[in-house]
Nucleic acid binder design. Structure first.
Length: 342
DNA sequence: TATTCGTGGGA
DNA sequence: TTCCCAAGAAT
């Protein structure tokens, strides 16, 4: 491996860069907008490009600048994020936008960016490189895979992270670090894929120690996955005057900050109590199964017959507009189940 | 270092 | 169908 690896990759990127809504094409004179770079990078954390695109378009249309986003009510941002997952990103997005607006713009260094909520080592490096042209070592899951193969790093993750970063540092160029980072990610998504890498199309094949060693597709080595437990829970649908009771989930835990149906306290740690929020005649409307990263929940959905009391705490939302409530997917499924039973 | 955070698509 | 995975961060 030599610095020519970076040159080969950048030459490939100049010809094959994906056209993405948040990306400035290589060779363009246009300046990157730090707001759009930051927003896209946060959305892309653990999330596919295809899933992000419509959300990116919606967010930038609704809030074209970081100042506009900073001025938005948090609940509006949370509702707009609904369905994209990992909702701590949306909570931190609002905090970071307000911090940036207060200080009069984005920090333009990796260390400065790293101080913003929701920006870890990866995102701070990526924004510094892509938006501000800083040389930064940008390591995401794509880069971990590409570097593990390129250098034939056979130590398993996560212990290999230090060696991966050091190796990535040696091939990161002084200039065009942002294009280099995006090129690594494009290569990882289209050529150096997790399964069945297309080595015969790879611009770095001659540099690749993993290819030379014979089984690049086996890298990086990863520890085995743990089994996902299945939890049981209940969600409750009650109406009065054409409106359904919604709650806002508190705290920073599962679905924190999101609107939801009242439930019986199920969690990753255990089953719910099956205790409804108010006494009355409850009817089962079916069950929705939803897989989270570390557990699956089987959610029994029940509906109260008759008119709900005003006593329970929450927000009465028009049933006809339930799709606009910003429910995370689990509760959106539950709502559709109830409405489909009519 | 290990765990806890969503979701939808592809093999 | 089931499993794996995707531009990770916070604790």
């Amino acid at each position: 491996m030599t610095s020519s690896t970076a040159t080969r990759l950048l030459d490939w990127y100049d010809r094959h860069a994906r056209d993405l809504p948040w990306r400035i094409p290589p060779g363009s004179d246009a300046a990157a907008d730090p707001y759009r770079v930051w927003l896209s990078e946060v959305m892309l954390q653990q999330t596919t490009v295809a899933a992000v695109k419509p959300y990116f378009e919606k967010f930038t249309a609704t809030w074209p600048t970081v100042e506009a986003l900073a001025a938005a009510p948090e609940e509006d941002v949370m509702a707009a994020w609904a369905g994209l997952g990992y909702y701590s990103r949306a909570r931190n997005l609002v905090k970071a936008a307000r911090a940036v607006a207060d200080r009069g713009g984005f920090p333009d260094t990796e260390a400065g960016l790293r101080e913003l909520p929701g920006l870890g080592a990866y995102t701070a490096a990526a924004v510094a490189a892509i938006a501000f042209g800083r040389r930064a070592v940008v390591v995401d899951a794509n880069v971990e895979r590409v570097i593990s193969r390129l250098f034939d790093i056979r130590e398993p993750l996560p212990a290999s992270r230090k060696a991966i970063r050091a190796a990535a540092d040696t091939i990161t160029p002084e200039t065009r670090a942002g294009d280099f980072a995006q090129a690594m990610m494009d290569l990882g998504s289209s050529i150096c894929t997790a399964r069945a890498p297309k080595c015969l199309l790879c611009p770095l094949r001659e540099d690749c120690a993993g290819y030379a060693a014979g089984e690049p597709e086996a890298l990086p080595f990863k520890p085995p996955k743990k089994a996902r437990p299945v939890r049981q829970g209940c969600a409750y649908w009650m109406e009065r005057d054409g409106k359904v009771l919604l709650v806002t989930r508190q705290g920073t835990g599962m679905l924190g900050g999101m609107r939801a149906l009242p439930d019986d306290g199920w969690s990753a740690k255990g089953d719910g109590s099956t205790e409804p929020p108010v006494a009355g005649e409850w009817h089962p409307r079916g069950t929705v199964t939803h897989g989270f990263t570390h557990f699956t929940v089987e959610l029994a959905v029940q509906e109260l017959s008759g008119k709900a009391p005003t006593t329970p705490k929450g927000e009465w939302w028009p049933v006809a507009e339930i799709e606009d409530a910003g429910l995370p997917t689990l509760f959106a499924k539950a709502a559709r189940l109830v409405l489909a039973s009519r």
